[in-house]
């Protein structure tokens, strides 16, 4: 066909589409009532159960169980709303042809990822805003004592949520139906929780489990959360004998940057080829 060269204005920027996607993702999230309830209630329910059963126990360094567990369950909640929810959602969107439409519209993959990340950050924030008061007023867990600890809490939570989102995007690329992906993602999330020291002291885990967990973001997210919620001397009971903030930031940032670079290239808009 001889192209009729109509001067067309450039399509909207990736940033503008990303913003539109964040709004869309949030709207969709809050319309799925079941998802809202699970995301927000799960960490609270887990805290209540574990703190009620094991409330009298103490963790290394005379830390009450609930205090130790809050760090783990906060990290788990973030993983749930990021990695698990994103991996499952992308597989479903691919199966129902929603991603195909985005591809045909020439949507930059990074704008699509950003939409997911924005939704994850907002929902993770709300989830934590619900969890922390329950821990504080229900189980007397002390909150971060000063601005420095709060800032640690914030950057660890944000980076953890972003790394979890990237991991979710990556795992959605696995072959198979959306149902199969959902199962695989859930199974992986459960195993990762045990490996990463959410339920047990990380120090009590066998060495190979510690090393495997160190590859994934959840271990660092959990450790970073402990550094925000536990007293300074508890750092001595970490594997490295300290909180390793530098290494935590490095691993999580690496997950985000390398992960996005890999996902942009390998992302599949449709099942099968292409």
């Amino acid at each position: 066909m001889t192209a009729v060269l109509v001067a067309r204005p450039a399509p909207p920027s990736a940033a503008r589409i990303a913003l539109a996607r964040v709004r869309l993702e949030l709207r969709l999230f809050f319309r799925e009532r079941q998802q809202v309830v699970v995301s927000f209630a799960y960490p609270v329910v887990m805290l209540v159960i574990f703190a009620s059963i094991l409330g009298g126990d103490e963790r290394p360094g005379d830390i009450p169980f609930a205090q130790y567990f809050l760090a783990g369950i906060a990290a788990t909640g973030i993983m749930l709303t990021s990695f698990q929810a994103v991996g499952t959602a992308i597989a479903a969107e691919r199966e129902t042809g929603q991603l195909e439409r985005l591809q045909l519209l020439g949507t930059p993959p990074v704008a699509y990822f950003a939409g997911k990340a924005g939704q994850v950050l907002v929902t993770a924030a709300l989830q934590l805003a619900l969890l922390l008061p329950v821990a504080r007023y229900g189980y007397d867990v002390p909150m971060p004592p000063d601005l420095g600890h709060w800032l640690t809490f914030l950057w660890v939570a944000a980076l953890g949520a972003l790394a979890g989102t990237v991991l979710g995007v990556a795992v959605s690329a696995l072959p198979g139906s959306a149902g199969a992906t959902t199962t695989a993602v859930s199974a992986f999330a459960i195993v990762l929780q045990f490996f990463s020291g959410v339920f047990f002291g990380f120090l009590e885990l066998p060495g190979w489990m510690q090393q495997l967990a160190a590859v994934f973001p959840l271990k660092w997210l959990t450790q970073g959360m402990r550094s925000a919620f536990l007293p300074e001397q508890a750092g001595a009971f970490e594997v490295a004998g300290g909180w390793e903030h530098g290494k935590t930031a490095l691993v999580l940032v690496a997950w985000v940057i390398i992960g996005v670079m890999v996902c942009v290239r390998t992302f599949r808009w449709r099942r099968g080829e292409g």
Binding site: R8, P9, P11, P12, L24, R31, G97, Q98
Partner: peptide, 27 residues
Amino acid sequence: VVSQGEGAPQALTVREILDHFAGYHAT
């Protein structure tokens, strides 16, 4: 492209979908 599947989230209304995807086009 008018594709075979609906390719749109079920939980949104027709107007919401059209308004959203309008943001992908220059005009």
